[in-house]
Design a protein around this nucleic acid. Structure first.
Lengths: 208, 208, 208, 208
DNA sequence: GATGAATGAGTATTCATTCAT
DNA sequence: AATGAATGAATACTCATTCAT
């Protein structure tokens, strides 16, 4: 392997390890030693390649949110109906979360702590994501397909469900038998089935 | 003040201080020194009165989720229509969050870390809360008012919105001008206005 | 022992230990662990009582130079002749160095590194010391006893000798036999004998 | 450039860089990275060409003190008067220090730390230097020109002044306005003017 | 001859917890 | 009931040194 490739490989492993540890433990709970261990590298490499713990965390955050917006946008055909577009947007969010299993944990903690590490860059990522439902709803209203409603509220309901579904999973598993039958049913459902239901509800809610 | 009263006052102050610190910093990020400082008490008092950091955290969690379910239930008249009951349930959740400003942060972090500190007791609290929409939906379906849908999904969408609305506030404030107009409008809205909209959407979504 | 006394005793021991370690190893070379060990205290006590390494160093510096000037001044009778005053000043410097065995090492290192830790406070200490020979020389010139000369140059020659005498001691001891006879003689001399000679030379140099 | 020349050039740059860093930071404070950076070379080169940090330091020390003695001796004509010889010796020291701006810092630190890195070789360098004033004084006494005095004391006064003058410069500059007028005058003087005054004082002190 | 990658062994600093009063 | 003193065990970060090319 070339030197440059070795370096990139090291950086990649550090970021991946860091992502998993930050997701599990949060920023304060994460141990740099543990990150190095999972990366299979010496701890000093982290400082050599990336920087201190905060820089590392920021890198992880950015690598997570960096291109979600554009990825989803890319999947929406310009000539689709607003209803179809909305479905693609919801599925896009679901796919993103499926692809980035650490995203919900990191995002929820980050928000819980006031988003202190959400840089301008990441804030723009968020704005880019939010603009998707905003545009779809506007188009839908103009075409008479949707009622007028606030896209951010809708977005928060959809994303809120997905993240709660994801992150409550261990608790639901653990306390399975204590929960009412309806929840138990949900427990056996995959997230994609849940997403289908969300889709149905959202469309019912906003159809003109 | 009597000795007993002094003791209770100390405990109260410790728990309150702990709640605010845990909400802001998370379990690992919270410093016992900081909790003692905010409580206006000596650090050793925490160990004397409550126990170690984990015991303290568990106390805080339980005091947060302990009686949410029964409080909401108590506000729902047996003879209301399902639609009215659903509104009361949604408002009940909103009021709870308004009353416990630290709840969203603590809950989101707790879920993010796999709910390791959600004891059986708290799990039962959750089950109790979930049973409310479950019962309302069942009643609504039986009366032909609602379509059949999964109450947990609904709950997660509603609670998801509220918690995200709450916790994204600092970020929205900070990056106000970068966000699309729709978000800016939301920014100036109170949570109660947001809740009204959620109510409207949810009812549209499930009305038969 | 009272609590307050215990605290003061701890602080005293930390400062003393720190002084010896800084003198031997310099700022960078000094290990906080070693300081704690010599103080007979836990390392965390240093941070609890004083602060980080730099704060500790600054405290040490100030405690060293804090009241040298006033101490020497206090020993000079107003009605003494300039010549007598000059002798007292030289002896005062010598006594100070004898009383503070770590002073030469710390001062020489500090100067070598550009005096970055010489605060305004310490600079005033220096100014106070320098004003002593300045005043004596001026008085001597006015009374026709001394020739006109620069007091700082004189001071640097005197202090320079004392510090070099002190700090070259280990080297002189170590390489004893390699040195010319004159040095060997000096080696066996006490510093006070050396100071006598300096006194004699200085007076010969400046007497009118 | 030939390979050999390149090598020599590398070694030269390393030594020069090392000297400046050691002078500024001391042995412990000096970072090998910084030395490599100033030398404009890769860090591994230092180990390849010179050796570890201690070897490097020793090289620097020796290159500093190596030929001071013989250089000064070479400037003293055998037929000069003792008084003239003494002047040449003092000026020789001053020139040496002027030529080696890093010498005072390194020497003062080295002495402060007990001269642990002053090897036999360097000790002989010192002995060689000390023999100069020793011989001059002896000759002067024999010729009835000088009183009998200890040459090492004289040497320490002279060298002490020069090194203190040099190393106190930053502090004097920094706290200029706080100092008494005499010091301010000295501040504006060049070292050569200071040396003239030292010369005058020394000769007055020892003239028979 | 020269260099970028990598690391082991430190080193300063923090923090939950206990002790003595 | 309450507190200031004290500490052991981490924990983030650094740095001289070596390795592979």
């Amino acid at each position: 392997m070339e030197l440059r490739e070795k370096r990139d490989e090291s950086v990649r492993r550090i970021l991946e390890a860091a992502m998993s540890v930050f997701a599990e433990e949060g920023y304060s709970g994460a141990r740099v030693d543990e990150i190095a261990k999972r990366a299979g590298l010496n701890k000093a490499m982290i400082y050599y390649r990336i920087g201190d713990k905060l820089v590392l965390y920021t890198e992880v955050i950015h690598s997570l949110f960096g291109d979600i917006g554009s990825a989803i946008k890319g999947n929406i055909p310009a000539d689709a109906t607003p209803e179809e577009k909305l479905k693609i947007y919801i599925r896009g969010l679901a796919l993103t979360i499926a692809d980035h299993p650490y995203l919900p944990g990191i995002m929820m903690r980050e928000l819980a702590s006031g988003g202190g590490n959400i840089s301008e860059l990441v804030a723009e990522d968020f704005a880019s994501i939010l603009s998707i439902p905003a545009n779809i709803l506007t188009e839908g209203v103009n075409k008479g397909a949707f009622i007028k409603t606030n896209p951010v509220i809708l977005h928060m309901m959809v994303v809120g469900f997905m993240m709660f579904f994801r992150t409550t999973e261990p608790v639901r598993k653990r306390y399975f038998e204590r929960l009412p039958e309806d929840v138990r049913i949900l427990n056996e459902k995959s997230i994609s089935e849940g997403v289908n239901e969300v889709e149905r509800l959202v469309l019912r809610a906003i159809k003109a």
